[in-house]
């Protein structure tokens, strides 16, 4: 996958989460092609987009990372990742990150992308798959636990 496609998502994720929740995200290595289904760390949020190309941004994190973000943003401690406010907050986070990233992409590459609504999932042994579409993952570490960023583009982002 072209680095110009995935870099904006990485930057937006880091910038927005730092701005909103003061949580620092450290990349572990390089973006790798995701050849298998993703086994969720606990809380997964996805937002899809369409324009000249189609794709999806998935942020997947350990519940402790999500709890910290929720705590910083809402100023209240919610530790139940099944709580509607908790989940809504994480979905909204992805909406903000996704919105920022596609604005960068639209400015640089005139893709005319628009976001669908964000969705968030939590559960036991959750597996997430995006059939027939290329995706690329960056594993990250925060002070509160692991997080991964997975970016998918139909046909690798070619028009």
């Amino acid at each position: 996958m072209d680095d110009r496609l995935r870099k904006p998502f990485m930057e937006s994720t880091k910038d927005m989460i730092m701005q909103m929740a003061s949580v620092e995200i450290n990349e572990q290595g390089e973006f790798l092609d995701q050849t298998e289904d993703i086994s969720s760390y606990g809380v997964a949020t996805l937002v899809t987009f369409v324009g000249k190309v189609k794709g999806r941004l998935l942020l997947d994190m350990e519940p402790e990372v999500a709890s910290e973000i929720v705590k910083q943003v809402l100023g209240e401690e919610l530790n139940d990742s099944k709580d509607a406010t908790f989940m809504g907050m994480i979905a909204e986070l992805n909406n903000i990150v996704g919105g920022d990233a596609i604005t960068r992409l639209n400015n640089d590459m005139s893709f005319g992308l628009r976001l669908a609504s964000p969705a968030v999932f939590t559960g036991k042994n959750v597996i997430i798959s995006i059939p027939k579409i290329q995706s690329s993952t960056m594993e990250c570490q925060t002070k509160f636990g692991k997080m991964r960023i997975n970016i998918a583009f139909e046909r690798g982002g070619e028009n």
């Binding site: 998935l58 509607a84 999932f121």
Partner: peptide
Amino acid sequence: VTPTPPSIIYGKEIYMIITP
């Protein structure tokens, strides 16, 4: 109206929110 690519999620005791 344009659809976006489908994702498949599976697991047990799933909780989800799909819209604000």
